[in-house]
Design a protein around this nucleic acid. Sequence first.
DNA 1: GTCTATAACGCGATAGAC
DNA 2: GTCTATCGCGTTATAGAC
Lengths: 209, 209
Amino acid sequence: MSQLDTVHRILDAAEVLFAERGFTETSLRTITSTAGVNLAAVNYHFGSKKELIQAVFERFLTPFTEHLDRELSRRASADQQLKVDDLLQSLYQVALGGLASDGRDPKRFMRLLGLAYTQSQGHLRRFIVSRYGASYQRFAGLLRVALPDIDPVTFYWRLYFMLGATIFSLSSFDAIEAILREDFGAESSLDETLARLAPAAAALLTAQD
Amino acid sequence: MSQLDTVHRILDAAEVLFAERGFTETSLRTITSTAGVNLAAVNYHFGSKKELIQAVFERFLTPFTEHLDRELSRRASADQQLKVDDLLQSLYQVALGGLASDGRDPKRFMRLLGLAYTQSQGHLRRFIVSRYGASYQRFAGLLRVALPDIDPVTFYWRLYFMLGATIFSLSSFDAIEAILREDFGAESSLDETLARLAPAAAALLTAQD
DNA sequence: GTCTATAACGCGATAGAC
DNA sequence: GTCTATCGCGTTATAGAC
């Protein structure tokens, strides 16, 4: 088995298992046996479990922020000024859809983001902020320009409300979808849910006090 | 030290440590040494770590749902029909404020709820649903009556969006508050944040498609 | 570059003395 | 009811053979 295969197989197994169980709850033994590689391979290729966790996020966040940055630049050059709806559409449809078109599961990505937020992995938060903080700042800045009438503190709280609604509900997408399917017999696809989320998030951001 | 003291001290230490680090990341050794009790005391008084986790949630959720149920009954007997704003006010101001007036930290409660949501503790989810599901169903049912024009699947997705915005942002209240204080020099109290969250959540729920 | 074997340690839980 | 001591197991990480 080539080195590239081994690294790849470890990342694939770790991504799925972390998303299902969390970081602490997933042992290197489980990851390596699922991946079909030797236990020592993780420490050889990644150095430590922490660095493996960061590598899993890097593989999601780099294409995600690239899709988002590209789409924001495209829209910004076309329009005079980006509106709230444009920005949310960039975030939801393009960035997540772009991820899906790369063959990466956007629901799993959201689950990992939720874990990064609540599990106290200080190293992971530092890694994400230092590596991808610029893209976040750009998006937040454009949204701020699109909502000039809201006072700044309220604006930022609403930004976190919006992120919370997004990450929380999408990270539990499968569980929520299963409940609604049982109660109403109606299946919800990720696209339909994003189509429901976008106007709700826009209303949240633009609400009158 | 009396038995009541020991049980109490374990619960106090576990509540703080779980909220700070998560369940798996907090060992019984850390809990008992923080509480100043013997390691064996947890298994003696609670049976297992899982049952200790449930006891920590019980001590928050029982008064919380009692406050909420009482307030919903009070409002329902006064008004003809409860509106969205009434229901959100019951949830935010009264239930959380009631918790605070009992001397229980509502931010810590929100952090624990966030953990229960994202950390895969199957036993905890089953415990919460079986013990407190009725209060949740009642609140969701009243909110449904207040929003009859929205189609049912959209309504429930929005309910999860609203819960996500609430739990996610309040569970990270201290971290978000610190960022905003550094950037704008403006402190945000929990009350002020709830006063910002209520209209935003109402707008999210009542949005036009 | 990949393997086996193991070091070094922390975990939850419990038996048994007091 | 509280203590000490310990069992049995799982963990990450690494040394050394191949």
